[in-house]
Design a protein around this nucleic acid. Structure first.
Lengths: 237, 237
DNA sequence: CTCGAAGCGGAAGTGGCGTTCTCGCTGGCG
DNA sequence: CGCCAGCGAGAACGCCACTTCCGCTTCGAG
């Protein structure tokens, strides 16, 4: 969770605007700065709980006790518990993706970049230190997809676009197959990676088999390259 | 859902023993037959609700009203709502898998078999008629994986083994890669297929891209074959 | 046939939890 | 100083899973 949860309280700059704005909108007044710090209190306390317990079924009571605030205050900043979780989810995805994107840009080629993303997602899911967050958010993942498809798509967009960019580049470089368009390929990739991350985070690989990052990447690579890629790179970038 | 939900009330023979036994064990007496029919009442009513609403958050009250039974009765057959959902999940997976397995045996080769499984899972997830069930169970999927890892593994075993058998055969025939062992390969396959099914059932493909069965299969095929398969079939079966 | 045990329907009751509401306080700004 | 929005504390409400109690029916053993 390193890059993700740590910067959740510290706060980067660009990526974490959306949910914060929504939270602040609820207390529209000139005391913006104060409201933000208060929203952060809730968020960081929630992160604490999730890190410790790994479950999203904590009570709102527990949250406000830990954050030394009141119920009144909580519902002034978030329309409900679900929106808090959404904010958390968004925050973590956004900051992680931003971090990974900047890391990827330092890597030599597309393959190394995609491989890095696979490694990071998988590693973050399996991280035992504070891995509780991922455990909790894994479960929340599909709940969100079901109850709020639009929000879900929006929240996952940063990661999707990161993968999409890499896939596009891979196709342009002639390294990947061309019989599946980039958007579809990227979506399958993301589903595969995220799905594997869920299983890994929950630690319940059905067959009792622990799935290694390397194997996962090799599988994805095969799917990306396909049987008949334009092996010789056609366009140079 | 045809093969799955329909036979849920009709009842096949072999596959759906486990949960039924557990349910019956709760009312151990020689009136086994009656208890079974009563459990079925709950199950089939639950299937009705899930088919219509696609949500697992129906109230137990609603369930017993529809099944014309009583709360008293419900808790005599199931320890709680969660166990009912578990039974449902198990039933559907087991009967579907059994059906698919027998279908696959009629197909000429391993590739066609695996392709068939991919198609079936994906089609079942996207089926609009009664697709509510899949929608609901998709969300329940990770909840179960988190709250009851052991049950989860057990319930998903039929599908996992079906895929595993096919993958093993593919490796033996020299059609698939050998640098990833069969168990791991099968698990990645299942995760990918099931993950895609979830997205498809929930209808929330993040990029707004609808994922076709054909593309999914082509991707998986690439992952299964890899870059350096023993192209010439080594052992004949 | 009788009687007792067990399953059942009906319905009130319990506890947990998300959410709302009430009230009294406080701190900054005109 | 006085206004008022934000806040803390907590009571209250509604929903829901789950429990418990009562009285009826059924069914099989004696």
């Amino acid at each position: 969770m390193d890059g993700a949860a740590t910067s959740a309280e510290g706060g980067s700059e660009a990526a974490e605007v959306t949910w914060r704005e929504r939270a602040v909108e609820r207390s529209l007044r000139n005391a913006r700065a104060k409201a933000m710090s208060r929203s952060d209190r809730f968020i960081s306390s929630a992160i604490e709980i999730l890190t410790e317990t790994g479950r999203t079924d904590f009570t709102v009571q527990e949250l406000i006790e830990r954050s030394k605030t009141s119920l009144r205050s909580f519902y002034q900043h978030f329309s409900g518990k679900e929106e808090l979780l959404l904010a958390l989810f968004e925050e973590i995805i956004a900051t992680s993706s931003a971090q990974w994107r900047s890391d990827v840009e330092k890597l030599p080629d597309t393959l190394a970049g995609l491989r890095y993303v696979v490694e990071m997602v998988h590693a973050q899911a399996g991280d035992p230190t504070g891995g509780g967050i991922n455990r909790a958010l894994s479960v929340y993942h599909l709940q969100l997809a079901e109850s709020r498809p639009a929000e879900y798509a929006r929240v996952l967009a940063p990661l999707r676009e990161l993968i999409l960019d890499l896939v596009k580049r891979g196709i342009d470089d002639g390294e990947f197959r061309e019989d599946i368009d980039a958007d579809t390929l990227a979506m399958i990739m993301m589903q595969t990676i995220v799905g594997a991350a869920h299983m890994h985070a929950l630690g319940s690989e059905p067959g009792g088999v622990a799935l290694g990052t390397e194997q996962l990447w090799q599988f994805c690579l095969g799917g990306l390259v396909g049987n008949g890629p334009a092996k010789a790179s056609r366009r140079k970038r």
